[in-house]
Design a binder for these strands. Structure first.
Length: 437
RNA sequence: GUGGGUAUAGCGUAGUUGGUUAUCGCGCCAGUUUGUGGCACUGGAGACCGUGGGUUCGAAUCUCACUACCCACCCCA
């Protein structure tokens, strides 16, 4: 019979050492734990929003004309003929919930974080999947440059905490709608006059997203782009001042950055500060984190005008970098006590002891497939059991047993009838494993 | 949507002038060993050779198509 495979662009995340490195659930758990911890320490609280939303939410926020909305959304009619869409990113849902539940009545700023799958109908390649996962944060209610810089600093410390090296921070300002409109027009004029020198893709970019021409890899386009007008020269006084302050705060806390006028987030809602963290340890998709300010979005979705900003980290890409950089992860937990048995009465007793140990938070196992004693011991070795206890007729009769340390071979007598968990705790109480990050 | 590459057991692989039963390693199961794992030895299970057609007495091998995966463009996390 034909096997059904996982959908294109989706990946199974398997336990422990099975599967490719970046698809191992314990690595994901470790990363997620760090992210939650760092977010909470910085005052962000978790929000969980549905995986699917009214399609109009994304059309209004991400923008009708963007690639994401035009050709990458998983949109379908549900049984009630409503158009719903699997979330292509995390911000829209968070803003929707912020408005729907009146979170704007909370003390400002409102700081939220999430870990969520996202869906985009794209052709998969290295670092790009149809189902991928984002860690994101959103902050509502501050228009101050210190919020922009603070958010960037938060991302920065997050990567440091995860022992990720060699990330490059790129920042830019794309101004408010007023200055961006002026700039786009100037840019169009400039390229319009040099149309004959542009490659085909750039010609199509000309009316869709002229800023994209700036980082075309075609050498001839690159030549033309060198002389193009600069967004930073078109910023209004307010936007310029804001950007200057963001930079000087970053300078003052020692965060290195590069001003890159070509970074243009492809989602319509961004204003002013935009930034990304890129890595050379990824394939062509080098951005591991992207974000910025979106001062117009809350109003766009029907709320009171509210300054806001956020960023998202691509978890698959993050894990890919960590793999490339061989970041050490904490050792996985292994079985602490394996209770082997000889014969059926002992099997039952082993089962009882395992239940008892588990209720005291000891990771315990006994035979579940009917193996011989020899095979049980082999199995205990394979799963990395730290201690074993063998039960047979003698132990059941006497109520005494022997616990063996599988690493040292050392054996200790225990009383099976009386406070076994206490005796085991005393035997196994050596140094706890230290975290790798 | 457009290009390029790849396809043999769970994983990694051998197999080119087409020729019997498709190789090896790891892993898995069992035995040597119902009273103590790791080592070793022995045995076992597991492959529609990606799918479908064509050439041929005969195809994993030659050929065509399709599909899947990977990579890149585009776009983004």
């Amino acid at each position: 019979m034909e096997l059904i495979q996982a959908q294109r662009g989706t990946k199974d995340i398997l336990p422990a050492e099975k599967g490719e490195w970046s698809a191992q659930s314990r690595k994901w758990q470790a990363v997620e734990e760090v992210m939650r911890g760092e977010a909470e320490i910085s005052g962000f609280r978790e929000i969980r929003t549905p995986v699917f939303e009214d399609t109009r939410l994304f059309q209004r926020s991400v923008g009708e004309t963007t690639d994401v909305v035009q050709k990458e959304m998983y949109t379908f009619l549900d049984q009630g003929k409503r158009s719903v869409t699997l979330k292509p990113e995390g911000t829209a849902g968070a803003v929707r919930a912020y408005l729907e539940h009146g979170l704007f009545n909370e003390p400002m700023p409102v700081k939220l974080y999430y870990l969520t799958p996202c869906y985009r109908y794209e052709k998969a390649q290295a670092g790009r999947q149809r189902e991928f996962h984002q860690f994101g944060v959103e902050m509502f209610g501050s228009s101050l440059p210190v919020a922009d810089a603070g958010l960037i600093a938060f991302a920065h410390s997050l990567f440091e905490r995860l022992c990720i090296k060699n990330l490059k921070l790129k920042i830019n300002s794309i101004g408010c709608p007023a200055c961006r409109a002026k700039y786009t027009e100037a840019l169009k004029d400039y390229f319009e006059q040099r149309k004959d020198k542009l490659c085909d893709t750039c010609l199509s970019r000309l009316d869709r997203n002229p800023m994209r021409i700036l980082d075309c890899k075609d050498p001839q386009c690159g030549e033309v782009a060198k002389g193009a007008p600069h967004i930073l020269d078109y910023l209004c006084d307010d936007c310029r001042g804001h950007f200057e302050q963001v930079k000087s705060i970053l300078d003052s806390i020692g965060i290195q950055y590069e001003i890159d006028p070509t970074i243009v987030r492809g989602l319509d809602y961004y204003t002013r500060t935009v930034f990304e963290f890129v890595s050379e340890d990824l394939g062509a998709q080098s951005t591991v984190c992207g974000g910025g300010r979106y001062d117009g979005l809350v109003e766009e979705l029907g709320g009171r005008a509210t300054p806001a900003l956020g960023f998202a980290v691509g978890l698959e890409r993050l894990l890919m970098i960590m793999q490339a950089q061989k970041v050490e992860f904490p050792e996985p937990d292994t079985c602490e006590l394996y209770v082997a048995n000889i014969g059926e009465p002992a099997h039952l007793e082993a089962f009882r002891i395992v239940q008892q140990m588990r209720s005291c938070a000891v990771e315990a196992e006994c035979d579940e497939v009917g193996r011989s004693l020899n095979a049980q011991m082999k199995y205990a070795g394979k799963i990395g059991a730290q201690f074993t206890l063998v039960l047979g007729d003698d132990e059941i009769a006497s109520g005494k047993g022997v616990i063996k340390n599988m690493k040292t071979g050392e054996k200790k007598k225990v009383d099976l009838k009386n406070d076994l968990e206490g005796q085991f705790a005393a035997i196994s109480c050596e140094g706890e494993d230290d975290l790798a990050f």
